[in-house]
Design a protein around this nucleic acid. Sequence first.
DNA 1: CGCATTTAGTATCGAGTCGATACTAATCGG
DNA 2: CCGATTAGTATCGACTCGATACTAAATGCG
Lengths: 190, 190
Amino acid sequence: MAVDRLYALLERLGNLLRTEERAAGLRHGLQPVHLQALRYLQSCNRYSNTPAALTEYLGLTKGTVSQTLLLLEEKGLLRKQPDTEDRRVVHLLLTEDGRAVLKEALPPELFKRALSGLPGEGEVLEATLTGLLRALQTANAQRSFGACGTCKHFQREGPGRFRCGITKEPLSREDSQLLCREHEAVPPGA
Amino acid sequence: MAVDRLYALLERLGNLLRTEERAAGLRHGLQPVHLQALRYLQSCNRYSNTPAALTEYLGLTKGTVSQTLLLLEEKGLLRKQPDTEDRRVVHLLLTEDGRAVLKEALPPELFKRALSGLPGEGEVLEATLTGLLRALQTANAQRSFGACGTCKHFQREGPGRFRCGITKEPLSREDSQLLCREHEAVPPGA
DNA sequence: CGCATTTAGTATCGAGTCGATACTAATCGG
DNA sequence: CCGATTAGTATCGACTCGATACTAAATGCG
């Protein structure tokens, strides 16, 4: 029974957020999925700003995402930059307009206000929901897209000096907070 | 910052649930919104099983919901029963087939398993999310659709004997657990 | 009562998402 | 060097959703 109620709650919250996103995007002629794409591109790292990574993040097919990106590019909210190493790959970079739209639209004002009324700043809620999300993602064989600094390949070399164990490249403090498609959570008890 | 992370979390959970609903509905030729409609109709009370109530619940327009209901009726998952008092109103009743589809599809198996791995049974999570949902609903001037027994018009007359302060009708214990479109939360400190 | 207003629900249309399929081009692997 | 894989695009059809317009029943106010 508690499972059913929790499911209903999450479903309803998801619907509400979508409705708000729809309203927020309407002002710019954007759909919910467009805002979600922009938000992802704003918070992912330089290894993860590609159509393929966005496809995995959104859980859609690559054809669908390709259309989404076409529209965003036409509107001038992002631009495509060919990868210098692998010429099949393009990188998606937000334009100033894209950043401006996001800043104006997300998260919705109503959400911020509703959240401010919650007790305790929501750290516990964030931790619980993260756990739930991880469980669902592993169950669906999906990637976690967590912050770089919480990955098991993240190496600390000194104060403010980090390195990625996969690419072997150095990482800044800002890098460590961005989402990565290669992210794997640190195994419990490490 | 915490607000942004929480927003992203809820958005992602919502997307995941939609994806799972899409997969679950595919087996019956149903879309996510169809399963959501069926689930609502299964858990709402006799005052709230109308197209108008469902429209408010889902946050869509009545035209959209009308189409959804047409499809569900054609598939034999629900039937329409004219109201005896107000001849503009119809009541939506799940058929046996409708109930069977729901039982098979919702909540998704993966969700149940993921939740079972969470610490502490989720009562705290349920309470927190309910609070967040209520806050968002009041901010959007939406109805809460809470369980009848948690409404400020719910009257206790004895063990297992209740009454609705609006309709003045008696309510059973089962009635008290169903969702109502007229639901208003008990004001804090009552 | 009588008539305008409101409410419940339906019908239709167009814009847009999304998955499926098929395709090109580049890279990888033996 | 050539088949297999991977990144991305193009096109099509099914479907959702909002907007608009509509009917029918109830309500309210003079």
